[in-house]
Simulated assay, not measured.
Amino acid sequence: MISSLVSPFASPFAAHATVIAATFVLAGFVKGVTGMGLPTVAMGVLGTLMLPAQAAALLLLPSFVTNLWQLFAGPSVRALVGRLWPMMVGIVAGTLAAASFIAGAGGAWAVVGLGAALTLYAVAGLLAWRFSVPARHERWLSPAIGAITGVVTGGTGVFVVPAVPYLQGLALKKEDLVQALGLSFTVSTIALAIGLASAHAFALDELSASLVAVAPALIGMWIGQRVRGLISAASFRRWFFICLLGLGIQLMARAFV
């Protein structure tokens, strides 16, 4: 039954091919400028066109490729894995536990959950919520944050809450933070793919549509990296969060109209 939700996967892709390509160019651009945002933007826009499980399956390869690129763009991979592995274990466990929700068990509430996650992230960004994580608390807080992030990922396809605020609170160097985000998002993508496959909402023969989306995402990311120093980061982030807020509210409202 769950697989029937995704069996017409090629149909929404074909019907909205231009919009999907433009979405991944935009999502890649945002990631190129800010170091994050590809799955968030993609899920937000595609969630208005198709089921969340279909949108999540479509973003798997673009998210994996761009996050792997981001992860290995610096020298600190081994040190970050050694520090953050409890968080990564939590992400995998939480995602696998919750993946059946986005895969179909959640029904219309999966869309509401997606909208709520986008809205919360946008509000946190607009209000510039920041907190510091004392080193003595990392041992227990890291796996807890990972597990919560995994549950949100498995339920909505969005990787950023609360992983991004937590990683920002670790006082990492700028380059290390970008790599840490790449590590978190890469693990989340892999865990989501396994979760969707386990719930029979994603199959290997459906990778072709996701593969087609890789090129627009890479093009957008390349453009974003080139213009990163030419635009105001603060202004860009503000409008990014405003747009996410609008998408989140629109997705939540769909359940009540």
Rank of each mutant, 00 (worst) to 15 (best):
Q225T: 01
L207C: 12
A197Q: 04
S235L: 00
D205S: 10
S208M: 14
F256H: 14
E206F: 15
T189K: 06
M252K: 05
A255D: 04
L211V: 13
I190Y: 05
G220T: 06
S188P: 04
S198M: 06
A234E: 06
A217C: 15
I219M: 12
M221A: 13
A215N: 07
L245N: 02
V214A: 14
A193C: 11
L244I: 10
I190C: 02
L244S: 11
G220W: 14
H200W: 03
L245V: 14
F241P: 10
L204S: 07
G229S: 11
R228L: 12
S232H: 02
E206M: 14
L196Q: 09
G220N: 11
G246Q: 01
A199L: 02
V227G: 04
L247K: 04
L245H: 09
I194F: 09
R228W: 02
L218N: 13
I223P: 01
Q225V: 00
F256K: 04
E206Y: 12
R237V: 11
A213V: 11
L207A: 15
A215I: 15
L211T: 15
I219S: 07
A255Y: 08
I223K: 09
V257F: 04
S210R: 05
F256Y: 04
A197V: 06
I231N: 06
I231R: 06
A201E: 02
L244M: 10
G224N: 11
L244N: 15
L196R: 13
A191E: 12
S198D: 10
A193R: 00
G195D: 10
A255Q: 03
A203K: 13
F240L: 03
E206H: 08
R226I: 08
L211D: 03
A193P: 05
A193Y: 03
E206I: 15
A199Y: 01
S235G: 04
L251G: 15
A199D: 00
R237A: 02
R254S: 00
C243E: 15
I249E: 07
F241N: 12
F202N: 00
A203C: 08
G229E: 15
A191F: 14
Q250A: 07
D205E: 02
G220R: 11
A197G: 08
I219H: 03
C243H: 12
L192T: 10
Q225C: 00
L245E: 08
I231E: 11
W222Y: 01
A213K: 03
L211W: 05
F241I: 07
I231A: 12
A203H: 08
P216R: 06
A201K: 14
A209M: 00
